[in-house]
Simulated scan of single mutants.
Amino acid sequence: MESTIVMINLFGAVALLLFGLAQVKDGVSRAFGARLRSGLATGTRSGLRSFASGFVATVALQSSTATALMVASFVERELVKPRMAQVVLLGANVGTAVTAWIVATGIAWLSPLVILAGMILHRSGSSARQGGGTALIGIGLMLLSLHLLSSATEPMRQSPALGAFIALLDNAWPVALAFAAGIAFISSSSLAAVVLILSLASTGILSAGLVIVLVLGANLGGAVPPVIASLGGPAAAKRVTLGNLIVRAIGCLIALPLAGYGAERCRWRRQNCRSTPISAST
């Protein structure tokens, strides 16, 4: 019975996170949609501007999938060159990583204030302000879901079944990579998958190496939905989304063998951080 309650709480928190992401996307689209699309279409004259455009669009929309689909449509209409489109998507990938870092920095206590501010804006007469209010409500719900995820995953530390499953993944990193990619694909959000992974990691049940592998898998799985969404489109749009998937897959192939080294570096830094105050006091 207790395990059933834990799973209900976990799935509910994930659902709230996905709903918050959708609210942010809808709110930003309503408030800044036209300007965001025009800025993304015109801000691709150089590699640096293309990268910055993808970064800003993804941080605003909280979705690299939405950015990828917009860029693919711009390539289809010849508003963006295919080469610059890939640079835009690289910026979108970095934007997703930065967004996950911001969301996971322990600011969940701000969620009531953010939701209150969003409600005040949402009740105003301006359509742009209503969109901004919807986006703020979505951000507040995302922060609230983090608190719920932390509470839901805390009892998992004592679960023998989860411990055995984590041990299985820790001994088979390619399986862990595919598992995280599947979660990101099902949720259509690499950000949601990364936040879930970080919530589990905060309980201490995941090793540093496994966390790195799971995050790699989440980023890989997040590139699949745009490919599927563009299958019915022209060849130019399909090349953009498929190219993004290939770039992420190559990155995973390069980073996967280095995950153990990254885990050792993290462990070494933690040990040094713990030992420094002791040596200073002696």
Rank of each mutant, 00 (worst) to 15 (best):
A85C: 11
A117M: 10
G217S: 06
W268D: 13
G27Y: 09
G27T: 10
A178D: 01
S189H: 02
A128E: 15
L136W: 04
A237I: 03
R77Q: 03
I212M: 12
S50A: 15
G262A: 08
Q86W: 10
S188I: 01
L148S: 13
L168F: 13
A181T: 01
R30C: 01
A181G: 05
T67L: 08
S126T: 08
L200E: 08
G140Q: 12
H122T: 03
G12I: 03
A85R: 12
G125P: 01
L206K: 07
G182A: 05
I166T: 07
V114W: 00
A108F: 10
S53A: 15
N171S: 14
T67V: 15
S111W: 05
G95D: 07
A72S: 11
L113A: 11
S151H: 09
A178E: 02
P277H: 13
T134H: 07
L245T: 12
A229P: 05
I139V: 09
A41D: 09
V75N: 03
A223W: 05
L36F: 01
G33S: 04
S145I: 03
P225A: 07
S188Q: 13
T58S: 11
L245I: 06
L90T: 12
G138I: 06
G233Q: 07
R123C: 10
G133F: 04
K81L: 12
V195S: 00
T153H: 10
V98Y: 06
T105N: 11
F11M: 13
I246S: 07
G20V: 06
A41H: 10
V227S: 10
G43F: 03
E264Y: 12
V28M: 15
V14H: 01
G262H: 08
V215D: 02
R157F: 03
T4H: 10
R274Y: 00
A57P: 12
L253V: 13
E154R: 15
G182L: 03
W268P: 00
T42R: 15
T99F: 15
T58C: 11
N93Y: 05
V103Q: 06
L61R: 13
K25L: 06
S230A: 15
G125I: 02
F165C: 02
L48N: 10
P225G: 09
V24N: 10
R267G: 08
T44N: 11
V80T: 11
A161H: 03
G204M: 01
Q86G: 04
V71P: 13
L253Q: 05
I166F: 01
F11H: 00
L169V: 04
D170K: 00
G43Q: 07
V213I: 15
T153D: 09
N244M: 08
R129T: 06
A92V: 00
K238H: 12
L231I: 06
Q271I: 02
S3A: 14
S111N: 06
A15R: 06
L216W: 00
N219P: 08
P160N: 07
V215H: 03
L200I: 08
V94L: 15
L116P: 00
I115H: 12
A108T: 09
V211G: 02
A117C: 09
A152M: 04
I166L: 08
W101K: 04
W109D: 08
G232K: 05
V71E: 08
R123P: 00
L48S: 14
T203Y: 04
L258V: 04
A13T: 07
A104Y: 12
